[in-house]
């Protein structure tokens, strides 16, 4: 299953709750302010290993944090986002 997180983990609990409930074989895509969860050295970096985490490249670039992304977090564009939605067996937004 693909999980979509669009909130900063420093403002809302969406990312933390998602990582706590997502199955280990699921993929989590960080979009909008959700990309801040991908920061290297942040207080939530430890959660990134609980599932496969990717971040939307355009939202990362917009926020100027391309150089601050934690190891293991791949960047995908909107075409990649669409592929993740259609590849998996379902999608859930943590709005």
């Amino acid at each position: 299953m693909l999980h979509i997180v669009n909130k900063s983990p420093f403002e809302k609990d969406s990312f933390t709750s998602c990582m706590h409930h997502a199955a280990a074989d699921s993929t989590v895509i960080l979009i909008e302010d959700g990309v801040y969860a991908a920061l290297k050295g942040s207080a939530v970096e430890g959660d990134l290993s609980k599932a496969k985490v990717v971040a939307l490249s355009s939202d990362v670039a917009a926020r100027g944090i391309e150089g601050n992304i934690a190891d293991g977090v791949d960047l995908v564009d909107y075409a990649g986002f669409v592929d993740l939605v259609t590849d998996g067996n379902g999608v859930q937004s943590w709005v």
Binding site: M1, H20, H21, A22, A23, S26, N89, G90, V91, Q92, S93, W94, V95
Partner: peptide, 18 residues
């Protein structure tokens, strides 16, 4: 529990989030 919530989500065809 959290495990049961995981199974609920994985077993759903449509997840509407509000």
């Amino acid at each position: 529990s959290a495990d049961e919530i995981r199974d609920l989500m994985e077993g759903s065809d449509v997840v509407l989030s509000f």
